[in-house]
């Protein structure tokens, strides 16, 4: 009974893994030259796709996290507060910190594999989803944190 099934699984693996990988390459898009106040729908869409791919497993589709494990991204001090600190969470990861007075036992791995544009987009999306409303995170803000906060 060990013979048949593994092969089906392997075949599936081979078929599905290639396109899954290809999806990771960010779609080409126009450079972000948005007005100071307005946040373009394209930015939010791009941010949502990065969120879905890289953040959703832990922070969940509704952005409300997992009890005692992964914190919510809705109306937290980190998300709505100082942008340098927020960008730093993605660049360096985070562990052992209480979020809005609650303890979380998971670990936030560094997302440094994202490029500056992707980080700006996903954080802009997070700051404008799950009930949040806050200004965009720009590519140059991300660049600055990355330049100064390199470990």
């Amino acid at each position: 009974m060990f013979v048949k099934k593994p092969f089906v699984i392997l075949a599936l693996l081979a078929l599905t893994s290639a396109p899954a990988f290809a999806q990771k390459k960010p779609a080409a898009k126009a450079p972000a030259k948005k007005a100071v106040s307005g946040i373009s729908a394209a930015t939010l869409l791009q941010g949502k796709s990065i969120y879905t791919q890289y953040c959703l497993t832990c922070h969940q589709a509704d952005g409300l996290g997992v009890d005692g494990m992964n914190p919510p991204l809705a109306k937290t001090d980190y998300v709505l507060g100082d942008k340098t600190r927020l960008i730093g969470v993605l660049v360096n990861g985070l562990k052992g910190v209480d979020i809005n007075g609650e303890e979380y036992h998971g670990v936030m791995p560094s997302q440094a594999y994202l490029n500056d544009q992707q980080m700006a987009d996903v954080l802009t999306y997070v700051r404008n989803s799950f009930g949040n409303k806050a200004s965009a995170v720009t590519v140059s803000e991300v660049k600055t944190v990355r330049a100064t906060g390199k470990k």
């Binding site: 599936l12 693996l13 599905t16 893994s17 899954a20 990988f21 990771k24 890289y54 497993t57």
Partner: peptide
């Protein structure tokens, strides 16, 4: 498995 090794595992697996 998918988050860490996306080339080997899709989200369903």
């Amino acid at each position: 498995l998918h988050d860490i090794f996306p080339a080997m595992y899709d989200t369903k697996q």
